Computed example of a mutant assay.
Amino acid sequence: MKRFVTEDSFWQLFPDAAIGVIVARGMRSADEVGEQGRAELASLLEGANRLAERHITSDTISENEPVRAWREAYRRFKTKKGARCSIENLLKRVIKGRPVGPITPSVDVYNAVSLKYALPVGGEDIDSFAGDLRLTVTQGGDAFVPLGEDGAEDPTLPGELCYLDDEGAVCRCWNWRDGVRTALTDDSVNAFLVIECVEPGRVGDCRAALDELAELVERYLGATIAVKRLVTAADREVVIED
């Protein structure tokens, strides 16, 4: 059995947070999505880039409310220098006129939801997890090779908040950077998808984003939604694989 466990050290920092969790099973490969599916996803992303403009009130990235909320959140734990929440990176592209484009179908789906709702959304390959997945403040030194870098080890820092399993870090600085070992690929079959919310007033948005993400994953990736849950301080763990 594999679980997703949010530990006390996380809730001590963010008692009012909400985390939407989806377990998607039997996803189509990128090839199986086909040309038409890819075209529809590209159109979905194009629309999501436009919808993201609703959340942008200033050309100065730090003055936009979703970014401000996450910068404040990042001040509560140790981070790698320059690390920013994933939604800041997406909104920055919109501000600069460099819309977020297609990558691979599973990533395109969650990027579209992230842009529309201005909430961080991410995904990992469940089949790559070693034991339980935990969201916790780490003691540091957890093995990690960042996605999109030169392949060098970049272990976690003491006091850093991150997703961990028994082999090391899965995503560093909460939602800053995925690792190579657990990243979704064109051939991933089973996915752990997550939507993170630190603003109590936006829990409703998180629920709506969770519902929409599940529907899109079913429609475009042909997956079965095995789990769809909102994790809170009162309901802290989810079984993700029996």
Rank of each mutant, 00 (worst) to 15 (best):
R207Y: 11
D178W: 09
P66G: 00
F4M: 15
R84N: 13
E215F: 09
M27D: 00
G222D: 09
I87S: 00
L213F: 04
I103Y: 13
D108L: 06
A69W: 06
T185G: 08
S86Q: 07
R28P: 10
L216S: 01
D211P: 11
E153F: 08
T104G: 15
D142H: 13
T136P: 05
V67C: 02
V170M: 02
R3Y: 08
L41C: 05
G179N: 12
A234L: 13
L115H: 02
P66M: 03
A234H: 12
L147W: 14
S62M: 08
E32Y: 08
G159M: 10
E124V: 14
G34I: 06
I126T: 06
G34F: 03
Y117A: 00
Q36G: 12
P15T: 03
F129C: 13
E218G: 00
D8L: 13
P102L: 01
V94M: 05
D125S: 07
E53M: 02
L45Q: 04
A130Y: 13
D165V: 13
P155D: 09
E215R: 14
G101P: 06
E241A: 06
R177Q: 14
K80T: 13
G97V: 02
V5C: 06
W11K: 11
H55P: 04
S106I: 14
W70Q: 00
A223K: 07
E153I: 07
K80S: 10
D59T: 14
L193G: 01
D127G: 07
L51M: 15
H55L: 03
I87A: 03
L90T: 03
T104D: 14
I95C: 02
A73I: 00
P105W: 05
T104C: 13
D142G: 14
L193C: 02
A214K: 02
R172Y: 06
P120C: 10
P146G: 11
G122W: 06
T138P: 12
L90A: 07
L13Y: 04
V180H: 13
D59Y: 08
T57H: 09
T79S: 08
T104Q: 15
S128D: 12
G201T: 09
